[in-house]
């Protein structure tokens, strides 16, 4: 959680640029998706640690309450969901790529939207799920939000299938079909986004209705 005086809120799906400056003046800028949405000056981030990274180890391991950060944002008006949108929405997230999609799920719930929402979340193991309790609670309480998981390394007890990557079969079984023309948001590592977007187009989704956000991973 970061308090940003004057932030003034953000749309679901937007990101911010965070700049860290070392004592020798060296600076590193990274983009992070925002997990929160709506008005207010408090911003929630969820950061995956890249052990060899320049920024994420500091954010995950070293940052202290009260530390100051240099932020720019909110940024990006394209990979966003607004409560006035009424069409069905299919969200597909890989790993920490779920973060901007969480913001959309939260905005959907907070606004009382009745647009059908569905999240397909690909994650290594059950322990790696971000905001697991919140997602499950929302899926149980809302008739307009459906949650599906794909585990790539280890599955929960009694899970009906082995771990594996998202495939055409999984996308056909666990996402809205192209025939209902959903808005689709895909976020994750570049390879994940590439393969999911290609399968979706092969399944008949209009390329322009599939919005993607790749992160490079450094």
């Amino acid at each position: 959680m970061v308090d940003v005086p004057g932030w003034g809120g953000n749309l679901a799906g937007q990101h911010l640029d965070l700049r860290l400056t070392a004592p020798d003046g060296y600076t590193a800028v990274r983009s992070y998706s925002i997990a929160s949405a709506g008005p207010g000056d408090r911003v929630e981030l969820a950061v995956d640690k890249f052990p060899d990274g320049e920024v994420s180890p500091y954010l995950v391991d070293d940052i202290q309450k009260g530390d100051e950060l240099e932020l720019r944002g909110p940024l990006g008006g394209w990979f966003v969901w607004k409560p006035e949108q009424t069409e069905s929405v299919q969200l597909i997230g890989g790993g920490s790529g779920v973060v901007p999609l969480i913001a959309m799920v939260r905005s959907h719930a907070a606004s009382g939207s009745t647009a059908p929402f569905r999240l397909l979340y690909s994650v290594r193991t059950p322990q790696d799920v971000f905001f697991a309790d919140e997602l499950r609670a929302l899926a149980e309480s809302s008739p307009y939000f459906d949650l599906n998981f794909v585990y790539t390394r280890a599955v929960p007890a009694n899970w009906p299938s082995k771990p594996g990557r998202i495939s055409r079969e999984i996308l056909e079984a666990s996402t809205y079909p192209a025939s209902i023309s959903p808005a689709v948001f895909v976020c994750g590592p570049t390879g994940f986004v590439e393969s999911v977007a290609n399968i979706l187009v092969a399944l008949g989704h209009e390329p322009t209705s599939v919005k993607t956000e790749r992160f490079g991973g450094k």
């Binding site: 990101h15 940024l75 394209w78 993607t212 790749r214």
Partner: peptide, 12 residues
């Protein structure tokens, strides 16, 4: 090299 999307240009 791996690429990201044009979204990443919003800040710069």
């Amino acid at each position: 090299p791996r690429h990201v999307d044009g979204n990443a240009l919003a800040g710069p």
